Simulated assay, not measured.
Amino acid sequence: MKKNLLLTFCLLLLNIHLNAQWQSPVSLDNLNTWSSKSGFISWYNHTNNGPKAAAYGNGLQLALSGDERFGAQIVIPTFTDQLLFRRKSADAWNGWNEVWHSGNLEPLNFMQKKVATIKDALSVNDFKNGYTFAYATSGTPWNGALMSFGGLNGNYDCQFSTDYGPGGGSRISFRTQNGDSNTVLWNPWNELYHAGNINKADISLVCKDLLANGNLWAKEIQVASNNPWPDYVFEPAYEKLSLTELESFVKINKRLPEIPSATEVMKDGINVGDMNAKLLKKIEELTLYVIELKHEVDNLKKDTKQK
């Protein structure tokens, strides 16, 4: 079998040689030079459209029989063990591609399927640089695909665990490994939220800051407030502005006291809890003004009747 393959390859090279435009390698000043025929090529002391910025090399140029606008180049830079190729399509060259071989392919640098499944207790903690199917008994949150990658010196890996169906088929969790101490520790699993699970009734979110550049829809929102609720307005010792003072303030500032201006709101927004407290305070003050006016009206009515 090997002899037949070798003979076939030799015949192919012989056929190319006999039908080539050049019977010996021709040095090209630019590898994009296209003669519309197959042949041996080389380049010397330049990097014009060559691969990997290599200044020297040899190779083959192949043209498509019947339509010589299409073809390919296969080259080997002189001072490396790299084999590279690219193709030409309708007068335009595509990028260079490197061929992997035993001299440049290191399996440990690539993720691989190491075992079909893992299921033993805590076996997920020892699974590194690969992918497999993991049962939850191994220590993953879900039954499904498991991927482990990264890992400086094998001590800082990241793992993703996915649910293939029993949990709804839309769950995915991740965790990281902390290798700073002598004892390498796995951090807890965290579930990712997305369109497939964020609306579930059993999901509770706790976060410090939530930024929404758009509409926020909710059936109920409860806002905690650190400011005192303004029931103190109804305390006898509370002093509010007189209506005359309030009128003067509004004419000058075009807003109510303690309420931010339109310019401030446009720039900084509002604190919902704080604003609700301020608005309630104004309503309570307004209630006191109405009560006072009611007393004044009643007194006026009383004086009118006495006259």
Rank of each mutant, 00 (worst) to 15 (best):
P166R: 08
Y164T: 14
F149N: 02
D157V: 00
Y164D: 14
N143H: 13
T137A: 08
Y156V: 02
T140V: 04
F160L: 15
G144H: 08
F133N: 08
D163V: 06
P166S: 11
G150T: 02
N143D: 14
K119T: 08
D120K: 14
D120E: 13
K119M: 12
N129P: 00
N143L: 06
N125G: 00
K128I: 06
G151D: 03
N155Q: 15
W142M: 12
S123T: 11
C158T: 13
F160D: 00
W142D: 10
A136E: 07
N153V: 04
N125D: 15
L152K: 13
A134C: 11
A136L: 05
F149Q: 06
G130E: 05
A136C: 06
G144M: 05
F133W: 11
F160Q: 03
A145G: 07
W142F: 14
F133H: 10
P141Q: 04
F133R: 09
L146C: 03
D120G: 06
G154A: 04
D157P: 00
L122F: 11
N129V: 03
F160M: 15
N155S: 12
T137R: 07
P141F: 06
K128D: 02
N129R: 11
N153S: 10
A145N: 11
F149G: 01
L152Q: 11
Q159M: 12
G151A: 03
G139H: 04
Y131V: 03
Q159C: 06
Y156F: 15
Y164K: 09
P166N: 15
M147Q: 05
Y164F: 09
D157W: 02
A136V: 03
S161W: 01
A121W: 04
T137G: 02
L146D: 08
G154Y: 07
K128M: 04
N143W: 04
G165H: 09
T162I: 13
Y131D: 03
A134I: 02
S161G: 04
G154C: 05
L146W: 05
F127Y: 13
